[in-house]
Amino acid sequence: MVVSLEKHVCHDKKAKVPDQQLVFGRTFTDHMFVADYTAGVGWHDLRIQPYQPLTLDPSAIVFHYGQTVFEGLKAYKSPNGMVRLFRPNLNFERMNESCQRMSMPAIDPEAMLESLIELIKIEKDWIPTAPGTSLYIRPFMIATEGYLGVAPSQKYKFMIILSPVGSYYKEGIAPVKILVENQYVRAVAGGTGTAKTAGNYAASLKAQEKATEEGYSQVMWLDGVERKYIEEVGSMNIFFKIDGKVVTPALNGSILDGITRRSIIDMLRYWEVPVIERRISMEEIREAHRTGKLEEAWGTGTAAVISPIGEFKWQNELFYVNNGQAGELSSRLYDTLTGIQSGQLPDPFGWTIEF
């Protein structure tokens, strides 16, 4: 389809940060995409404009009742100079699933992908090329109606901003340390755990503060009912290699359906590595560690891609995984997936688009 898209190009360009100095989520490009929604009209006024602050009524529903959703994906510069996106259609489809849960209007995935491509074409010089870097893409939607009533908004903004980034974790591909959370709960089935909505992440901050104080990179959440089954890490889904087989928590209504998670499962099955989606308890991980069967553990997500895990702390007990080193399988997954994303390796799955 052809999108009616206004373009207002910025002539006062920002200075670019050298690739080696990029950190995650601190630098933003010159332009952003914006679309407005009005009940009874639908989405209108699609435009690319200079990156700038927003002006919202203090009573806007997003501030008071948290009606907001977001996504995250990345763009890469391939060796032939073309721009590559990794499975972007899945991000826009998942955004609509989040919108449905949060009583927000659906977007047209095809139109928004076309708009994103036009935005990146304007900003392609912002895509870093150093190893481990990329252009992070943040589509998001907020409720903008000024109304102090607990009801879905009648007005919304959908926006896309771009940020050249380095590694999500300062450790890079080096194994991270994970604190298993026992006190706080992130989500339960029937809640909003499967939606990418801001409240889920706000609810995680207290536990993350505690983990950081103890020297851990992230929190691993247990289920909110029995407090024994593993769900996910703060910004990642999680995988374990136990006695030659890969296991990952099954989607249960409170775990995010990660796009990187899906891709890793597909890659493992393509390689004929046994992979099982099921419930996993911390007692099982403790026993696998005790018997020497816990071979590897890693997290997956758009931001970090693959993050090997070298240590867990649960109930004041430390579990070291693979002597605190990155495992062979997680390293192979990282190298292969980032190679496909960046165009350094062939894409046998048809996951990438190039322009």
Rank of each mutant, 00 (worst) to 15 (best):
R262P: 03
W314T: 01
Y169G: 06
W314I: 07
Y320D: 00
A326C: 10
V9S: 01
I127E: 01
R138C: 06
V2T: 14
I230C: 09
L46A: 15
W271S: 10
G299Y: 04
W43P: 03
R262M: 10
D223A: 03
V150C: 03
L329I: 12
K293D: 11
V69D: 08
T248H: 04
V273M: 12
S307L: 06
V34S: 13
A207E: 02
V180G: 04
H64Y: 04
L256M: 12
I142M: 03
V17F: 06
I353D: 00
P249T: 02
E277N: 13
I48R: 13
I137W: 03
R138A: 02
G215C: 07
N322A: 12
I276C: 05
A143F: 03
R94A: 11
D335M: 12
T300M: 06
M159K: 07
I61A: 05
L256R: 05
A174Q: 15
M236H: 08
T338V: 14
I353K: 04
H289V: 01
L119A: 10
V2P: 00
E277T: 03
Y184S: 07
V17D: 00
T194V: 15
G343I: 05
P249C: 08
A39N: 02
E145W: 02
T55P: 01
G149C: 01
N96L: 10
M82A: 13
P274Q: 09
E93W: 01
I340F: 10
N237L: 09
S331N: 12
Y76P: 01
F239R: 14
E283M: 11
G292V: 08
K206P: 02
R227S: 04
H11M: 04
W126P: 09
R94F: 05
F92P: 00
G324C: 11
P139D: 07
L116Q: 11
V188M: 01
F70K: 09
G72F: 09
E97C: 00
L162T: 14
G191Y: 01
A303T: 02
K206Q: 14
I264H: 00
L56K: 03
K77L: 14
R261F: 01
E232L: 01
L333Q: 10
L337T: 09
G215E: 07
Y168P: 05
D125Q: 15
V150L: 14
F158P: 01
F319H: 07
N316A: 12
P175C: 11
E97T: 09
W298P: 00
I161V: 15
N96P: 08
K157M: 07
H289I: 08
C10Y: 08
L22F: 06
F24Q: 06
R279T: 06
K155E: 10
M82Q: 14
T291Y: 07
L90C: 01
M282K: 04
G193N: 08
L162D: 06
A303P: 02
I160C: 05
A202W: 06
E295V: 08
A143S: 09
E118S: 15
A39K: 12
T27C: 09
E97G: 00
F63R: 04
S263F: 14
V185Q: 02
I280D: 00
Q21H: 12
H64I: 08
G224P: 05
P88R: 04
P164E: 06
I306R: 08
D223L: 04
E118R: 15
P308Y: 04
G199E: 07
L46F: 14
A203P: 02
K13N: 06
R227V: 02
T336L: 12
M104I: 05
Y201T: 07
R101Q: 15
A151T: 14
F28W: 05
K157H: 13
